[in-house]
Design a protein around this nucleic acid. Sequence first.
DNA 1: CAACGAAAAATTTGATCATATTGTGACCTG
DNA 2: CAGGTCACAATATGATCAAATTTTTCGTTG
Lengths: 226, 226
Amino acid sequence: MIKNKTSESASDDGKRPAHEQVYHTLRSQILFGEMVPGQPVTIQGLTDSLGVGMTPVREAIRRLISDGALVFQGNRRVSVPVLSGEDIEQLIFARNAIESELSRRAALRMNKKEVDDLEAIDRNLDEAIDAGDVSGYLRQNYAFHAALYAHADAPVLSDLAERLWLRFGPSLRIVCGRFGTQSLPDRHKDIIRCLRNREADGVAEAMAQDVEQGMELMADVLAKRP
Amino acid sequence: MIKNKTSESASDDGKRPAHEQVYHTLRSQILFGEMVPGQPVTIQGLTDSLGVGMTPVREAIRRLISDGALVFQGNRRVSVPVLSGEDIEQLIFARNAIESELSRRAALRMNKKEVDDLEAIDRNLDEAIDAGDVSGYLRQNYAFHAALYAHADAPVLSDLAERLWLRFGPSLRIVCGRFGTQSLPDRHKDIIRCLRNREADGVAEAMAQDVEQGMELMADVLAKRP
DNA sequence: CAACGAAAAATTTGATCATATTGTGACCTG
DNA sequence: CAGGTCACAATATGATCAAATTTTTCGTTG
């Protein structure tokens, strides 16, 4: 079986329509910090680099703007968002509210094997931290939260959480890039322990601390040098 | 000044690009219940009825899907969302958290005149209720909340709130259509009183009750006949 | 004479449309 | 009831038009 298409990138997934491909490609790039806050995003640039027409690119960009993953800058220009102090403050509030509830719901629903799987992700995360692998850290950290929330059985709330992550993804990468992977502490061990004991409120509390610690470090770092 | 364009609808706003026009037109239709939950939405249907090409329509639809205002049903089909009981439960939680915080922030920032303006909206709302004007009720009720949140100076949280409103708009219309405008009680008078006294926590509490009452009535009604 | 600034041309990017292609579901037939 | 065919709607592209930014040029001024 030969791929005779030129296919410069975008990993031809075979079936999915191109606009979804583009959406998911860009989404990952934003979520995992492959785009820098403030970086301009052009339609024509993407049609060239991704090797697709403009229509799918336009649709993907609209979707990402609606997600808060990109911002429309008035004069037809689109760019990766730069977070202000107030933005981060609001993100802390919203993440605390939404993600602690998601954690609580997940705690009530997860069985032993599912907690084991989550712990496996956390081990991968620790490996990435030890290796100083920033990209791996961002991916595994996201995977940990996403896996937990997937068990909450709450699509509306999960959706909101995803949007919030898209907003701070690029900035989180900046923080990690400056201070390495050691600097961001987490409460994942507490979360897993409480999950095993089925202490839903404990899980929610640990998640709230996890969120708050990470976001406040981010706020501090970005306040010094935006 | 003559509009010589055929312009069947979409109120040619002069400057804004067509895809934004289409987006806002559809957004209003969804928010104010001019679309029925479950109703299919086709690209070609909209290109015909709005008198624009398909590209702007496609972009607007993608944006609305990302907003949660429309749902993509797997096989290229798009429709207006139908809320399940679990969806409403999650909406109640999220609205409570986000909108009470927005109210609290607004309370700390609003001056006397701004509260007067809000009260004027509430009077319009009461008129619509007395007149049994469902469409007017939906618009004025939204206007009341939107005006309040606009004073919270919290764009990230306001954005989240807008998304939640888009999700339940069509279903709220169904509830009003079945039971009239009298059936939905609100706490707007309490909110205004607390705003005048600068009791931020009181405003937040009243808003939480306003949200909860409305949403639970909606849940009850839809539970009987979805 | 150099430097600054304003106006105009050129380039780049975005927006829209018309058209070709592809995939989906319905309908008909054996 | 299975399999094939047909019609319709969605997807994707490239061409064309419009807008905005950048660059260039020219005139004025210190």
